[in-house]
Amino acid sequence: MSDLRKARFGPKTICCSLIGAVMLSGAGVSSALAAGSPQASSSSTVANRPAPLVTVGMVALLANPEHYEGAHVRTFGFLHIGRDEDVGLYLHREDYDFQLTKNSFYVALSPEQRNQFRGLSDQYVLLEAVVRSSKGFQADASGTMVSITRVELWNPLHIDQKGR
């Protein structure tokens, strides 16, 4: 019974915390992006500094990927690692289950990262990467995550994700 409750409401809990992340970080993203953009840099020292990490929800990224072009973001979503370019970060598990690919970003993992993170496939994760609005060979996605620096299981309520 307890498991059923978690299975039904677990994703909603995560969803709500995601939306919270979007709303909380939303206001800060534009200013952080502007500060990190080459146009806003007044010296070469600042221009060479890596873009600051901003926490953004998938909803905001999916809604306007061009706005986040080149931004170094931390976001949360459902990761699937399949064959070749079938590697996506989806808004929700259901978006993967029903292949709503527009609700996803292609995650450009290197071969080494693919092996390293394979165990996190089909689970919700925290992911840090640079956003590109181009799509490469994953034309159905809404954009691409490149230069991936961190992927971790995101499961604060310890829900059995794979057993569902």
Partner: peptide
């Protein structure tokens, strides 16, 4: 195969 997987095959084939 997933829709995403087939879409990637299409994209590579087109390219």
């Amino acid at each position: 195969p997933t829709v995403a997987e087939l879409a990637a095959i299409t994209a590579r084939g087109r390219m």
